[in-house]
Design a protein around this nucleic acid. Sequence first.
DNA 1: CGGGTTGGTTCAGTGAATGAACTAGGATGG
DNA 2: CCATCCTAGTTCATTCACTGAACCAACCCG
Lengths: 172, 172
Amino acid sequence: MGLGKNYEGQDCSLARSLELLGERWTLLIVRDALYGVRRYGDFLAHLDIPRAVLSQRLSALVDAGVMERRRYQESPPREEYVLTGKGKELWPPVLALAQWGERHMSAAGPRRVFRHVACDAPIGAGATCSVCGAHVPAEEVEIWPGPGADLTREDPVSVALRGPHRMLEPLP
Amino acid sequence: MGLGKNYEGQDCSLARSLELLGERWTLLIVRDALYGVRRYGDFLAHLDIPRAVLSQRLSALVDAGVMERRRYQESPPREEYVLTGKGKELWPPVLALAQWGERHMSAAGPRRVFRHVACDAPIGAGATCSVCGAHVPAEEVEIWPGPGADLTREDPVSVALRGPHRMLEPLP
DNA sequence: CGGGTTGGTTCAGTGAATGAACTAGGATGG
DNA sequence: CCATCCTAGTTCATTCACTGAACCAACCCG
């Protein structure tokens, strides 16, 4: 992008976050990575994003230290993209935006339900467990399809998410 | 924008939020509105945003029910933009993104500090008070300049934010 | 050798962002 | 009553990024 041009005059940490995360598609890539998507082709099929944009965004996320690109097999050489600690900490803002969308933008009811595996209880506001009240990191969350979920998509990631799935575990 | 085009295939509340909020500048406008900015000219000077973009974004936010446009004086007719309830509920995601930026993108230390006025205690993760532990809505938050704050900007909003200020109270 | 899979790059066309100039209604000052 | 200023916009030419389709390269399999 290179569009810090005008954001960079901003005296605000939100603006600094948005220089990276405010790009079109970037937060959706992070969301998929939190779900457990790791391979270029899976991001491509699940997000339905132009290849050039996906390449540029993944590079930007790696450069920013949010994701790490690593070779998971030689011969044939295959790369995967996984969230770093910095990237996993995006779980609270991603959840907060999704919850806002759920309350105000989704007529059909929740599309995904997040549960704290230790308590088997839903996650509430602020990424806290509704039973134990503790802050729940992404690793301890299980994703379930909600009543508003769309079951028509046939890409591997969508199919895998029709059942419950532990966040950050490789998908599909 | 009009770019729901590709997001709309997404089976995710985050994507629905981002159709509106993921546009360049939009979340910064919401942040300023949470701070208490209400007038076109103040948004313009504080954000340093092109006029056409500001007009388009404010209209989109009003159409989405996040802000309300209202005449605060006749003769000369003057309009102001204030957050609706739906808009005020963007405080948790905005704070979550800002806190992430503060931890990972700001070398100079916090630029703004948020305090729960009832407890006179800092706000922690998930928009909860670090003392009483309750979720703190934006109305009960006071903004203070932090050690990393930039004191060189001279627009009215930046000047007003050099001192403490109750969120959502008209600014400047 | 031919076809398939993965992970990209390149390129022309389109659409949005940018910055400067312009407009309009009313107030203000002499 | 005329000139100037203020607020809140709109218009417009240029630049830039996004889009979609095509292409490329390394490697495997039969």
